[in-house]
């Protein structure tokens, strides 16, 4: 899927258009959240304190590590070392799946304490934003899995394909970095 984005300035994978648009969309989310927070600072601080920073931290480490493994598999793909590609992708997916598990545990725990998307404005944003992020994460895992399947045969377009999937996965990581800081790490006013 290697295409020319601009004739003059060389080629970038076309998926960057998607990634830029999606990141801009998340910036809208961040802005809206922060503005709403200004209107109800005490509520937001109180509710944010109910989140488990350790789980958020664990998820951050999971995504960073998975992203590292995906970057390594792209390197291997460029060198034509398909065995390494498959091994690293399997590890990346394995580690990456843990994010979903941790998130599910987190959601279940919150629900068990009666904290739902309708509880208050903070929890609305928490569930919706992490939910939308989880959707992107799901798409990312599916793309990595498809890449792993495709890595079983020799194929001219593979390098371009794995690069695009890797870019998407790094976007998932990138968005989580900001979500983690904004939702979990912001202190009381």
């Amino acid at each position: 899927m290697r295409e020319m984005a601009q004739h003059r300035s060389g080629s970038v994978p076309g998926i960057l258009t998607f990634i830029a648009a999606d990141t801009a969309n998340f910036i809208l989310f961040f802005g809206y959240f922060m503005v709403e927070r200004m209107a109800q600072p005490a509520l937001f601080a109180r509710s944010a304190a109910m989140l488990d920073i350790r789980l958020g931290l664990l998820n951050t480490v999971i995504l960073i590590t998975s992203g590292w493994l995906v970057a390594l598999s792209v390197e291997a793909a460029r060198a034509g070392e398909m065995d390494k590609v498959r091994c690293r992708l399997r590890l990346a997916i394995g580690v990456g799946l843990c994010f979903g598990v941790v998130k599910t545990i987190e959601y279940a725990d919150k629900m068990a304490h009666g904290l739902t998307p309708q509880t208050d404005a903070f929890f609305t944003f928490y569930y919706v934003f992490t939910g939308i992020h989880l959707l992107h994460y799901g798409i990312g895992i599916a793309l990595l899995a498809a890449t792993l399947v495709r890595a079983r045969r020799i194929d001219a377009g593979f390098a371009g394909w794995i690069e695009s999937c890797a870019l998407f996965w790094h976007m998932v990581d990138l968005l989580w970095v900001f979500l983690f800081a904004m939702l979990y790490l912001q202190g009381a006013l």
Binding site: E3, M4, A5, G14, I15, L16, T17, F18, A21, D22, N25, Y32, P117, Q118, A121, T124, V128, G131, I132, L135, I139
Partner: peptide, 27 residues
């Protein structure tokens, strides 16, 4: 190609409507 990628992004963004039935008010 950027137009095609934009179209894919539009498709994904529409999934935001999934939250609509759960919120009688708010964004």
């Amino acid at each position: 190609k950027p137009v095609s990628w934009f179209a894919i992004w539009v498709a994904v963004v529409f999934m935001g409507f999934c939250f609509l039935p759960f919120f009688p008010d708010g964004p």
